[in-house]
Structure formats: C-alpha cells, structure tokens
Write a protein that binds this DNA or RNA. Structure first.
Lengths: 237, 237
DNA sequence: ACCTGAACACCGTTCAAGT
DNA sequence: ACCTGAACACCGTTCAAGT
C-alpha cells in the first residue's frame, strides 16, 4: 500500500516543504491530522487546501475526489501497522502470538487516531469479503498464511477471520466512541447532549450510571481477545 | 421514545395525508425510507421535502436541523423493536431467553434497514456510556432489570452489557456491510471497486476468495451469541 | 399556523487561464 | 507542470413575506 515515492526531491523528508510541491502522500497525511483535530465534519477541500497553503482546487491535481481522499486517509493511517515493531507480517511464535499482536496493533492504531478510526471501520471496502478494520489485502493474506501454517483448514481459517474482524470492529468502535471521539464518520454536534427527560424513569441505569462510566476497556479487550483465541483454537484441525 | 402524537387529525393514519399537515413523525419515516432507497449521501433537506411535496425549508418547522433529523430517524427505526412480538421488555423465561430475543430482534432491525443501520451504529449517543446499537434508555434499563432479577451483581451486569453491545455492533455492522449495504453513513460510491492490482500478490486470499464470499452470517451470529451467553453466565454470582 | 422565496455562506468539482 | 479564479450546481439554514 501507499506508494509514497519520495522522489528524492532534495527536501527534508516529512516536512511540509516550502510552498509548492504538493504531493498525494502529504495531502493524505494532512487530511488525517485535520480530521483528528477538527473532526470529519469540518474537512472540506477548500479548508484542507488552506491548511496546506494552497487553494482547495489544487488538491484535485493529486486526489481525484473527496471520496478518494477519505479512502486514502484510511490507507495512510492503517499503514502505521507496518511500522509497528510489535506486529509481525510473518508469525514468529505461533498463530496465537500472531493474532494477539495484530489485534493489539490495530487497537493502538484506533487509539492513536480516535477521530479517524470510524472511517476505517465504515468506509465501503474494495471487495465485499474485506471486513474492516482488517482492510489491507497484505494483512488479510498474512492472516490466512499464519493460520494455514498452523494447520487450520480453509473453512476454519475463514471462520476465524470473520470472528476476528467482528470482534475488533465492535470493541474498537465502541472504545473509540466512549473516548469522547465522535463515533460518527458524518458529523459532530455538541460534546454530549444530556438525556432529555432525566434518568428518573430508568432506575437501574440511574443506579449504575457511575459504574457504567468507568473505563475498563483495556481489560475487557484482553479478556474478550483471550476468549476469541480459545474459540478459534477449537476450530483448528 | 418517539412521542408520535397522531393528534386525531381525522385522516387515514399512516398515509402521507393530502397536502399540508406535515408532522415530525412522518418526516422521520420518510427520511428512513429515503435513506433505504437512495442512500444517506442523497438525503438533503430539499430532496426530502420534495418527496413530501413541500419545499425543503418547510421541514425546519418540524425538525431543528439535519443532525436532529438523522437522530430522529435512528430513533424511529429502533422503535420497531417495541413492536416486535418476539422481543420482551420484561424477561419471561429467564435472562438467556431474554438476551437471545433482544439480540435477534436487533438483528432483524438491522437486516430490515441495512442502509440505516450504520447510522444506528455510529451516530454519537446521548451519553458516553450508551453503547450502540442498544441506544434506547428504556431497553438499557430493561437489560439491567433482567440481569439484576437473574442474580447478576452490578459489575457483572455492566460487563455483560458491554460484551453484548460490542458483539452486536461488530456482527451487525459487518453483516449489513456485506449485504452490499453501504456500510458508510457518509457516502456511497460505486457498488464495489475491484481490487486495483488484482490478487496475484495474495495467494491465500486468491485461493479463499470463493469461500470468503459465502454468506454464513446467520449461523455465525447464532454461534457467537451462544458463546457470548456462556461467557456472561460465567460472570454471574 | 404553516409554507414559500429569496438570500447567505458555504460545498465539490470543472476548466480555462495564468505563471 | 502546477496552481488559481471564476463558474456551476448544489448544500444547510434563516427569515421576511405570503396565504
């Protein structure tokens, strides 16, 4: 993914260059930052252009449309997984270690970009059998390679892939939403609209409100993940 | 939820009335239908107005903003759960039966409105501890009532609530997405962009493509749900 | 009381024109 | 080769005006 190119442009890499010399990669990176800072709602071609010191119309030289821009941002953010030293494309200590590392790596991506993650979760994938958040073919292929090498038959590997992606999507989307991140890829109204009628009519919720607000997401993630690995183990051979 | 009102207006209920007499409920219903038919992308105030035989600006008499319109649509669609004879607000045959019915009812809602469900899943909830897709306080309170009556301690009930919502969100969002529904609450480009480079570089995916495209979602849902109930059982007392 | 028309400040996108 | 300006067909939203 991400054919960066870098083109040996003679400039300090990773810096937004002086003035001209926009490039696709830099636009996507800026877009991801923009969403993280201001929310998807605020992202317009004109505003992103402004942030890059350029008219919005100039972006079309490098990015075919706003939709493509969003897809590109998803790709770029997911690319962090390739740079994560804790996650291996090739399993090194068995399939359980491999899945554990992959799951935790995706969680780190989600938590690093809580505003962008809903986009990772909900942008329509390139094929119907690609299941977010594992949307990169290289990782999906790596997933099946790891399970195949561990002796999983094809149907078991596919079942594992589906269970794994459902688990990640549900947990990470809700965790990121609870972080106060706007879970909606669409809009972001006020921080939190209080409950209109109050909680009088809902005694259990009222009693549990405090406890419901505690953050146990890390533990819950690990527990559910361990359970998932056990279920997957049961599918093997 | 949904203070319908109906107002004894002297007209055949449920029909879009002759000309005037817009009302909030009818706008929300039309909005849900519009999204289901044309996708969220296409929904604008002006177009929804046109569909109701009115200028878009007239909708503001009944709905404060487009955001509120979307929240209202989510509410109205989720209200189908109250009309579902298979789902009980009060448990009748123990907590497992109660959860099973609730989960299946939510799945029916998702499958009945695949284009709207992503909105249910991703619109920012009214409080941070409300976890989609179970976003109605009445149902959340009912959930805790059922588990409390079954002897769950508070922390166990909260853990169950979290596991239940993560499970539903992950499964249903991915199932609805695979249905060809546009999973994104934001946009809908072409039906499916084929993989750009082809599958040559991904041998496992290539081999498994057929199998990956098979729909086993109903069985997977039931299996994962059964497993979830076992995990929840283990939290009890 | 409820809907309409015109208006405002934006959008995404195209394209001829500038440098 | 790359960016800009003007333009087009839209948006959401407000509000005075109509009926």
């Amino acid at each position: 993914m991400s054919d960066s190119g870098t083109e040996a442009d003679g400039e300090i890499a990773g810096l937004p260059a002086r003035r001209h010399s926009l490039d696709r990669r830099m636009i996507l990176e800026a877009g991801a930052d923009f969403i993280e800072t201001h929310g998807l709602r605020q992202l317009s071609m004109r505003r992103l252009g402004a942030r890059l010191g350029v008219e919005g119309m100039s972006l079309y030289r490098h990015v075919p449309s706003r939709d493509d821009l969003l897809d590109g941002i998803v790709e770029v953010v997911l690319d962090d997984l390739y740079g994560d030293p804790e996650v291996y494309l090739e399993p090194k200590n068995g399939w359980q270690d491999y899945l554990l590392r992959l799951a935790r790596g995706l969680r780190r991506v989600a938590l690093a970009r809580p505003q962008v993650f809903p986009l990772i979760a909900t942008r329509p994938p390139q094929a119907p059998w690609i299941r977010p958040p594992l949307r990169s073919l290289r990782w999906i292929d790596s997933f099946f390679g790891a399970l195949g090498a561990a002796g999983f038959r094809d149907d078991a590997a596919v079942a594992a892939y589906r269970a794994f992606s459902s688990f990640l999507l549900g947990h990470l989307l809700l965790e990121v939403a609870a972080k106060g991140a706007d879970i909606a890829p669409v809009e972001m109204p006020e921080p939190q609209g209080q409950i209109p009628g109050g909680l009088e009519a809902y005694p259990h919720v009222r009693r549990l409100e405090q406890r419901l607000s505690e953050d146990r997401s890390a533990e819950e993630f690990e527990e559910s993940l361990a359970n998932l690995l056990n279920r997957i183990e049961a599918l093997r051979d």
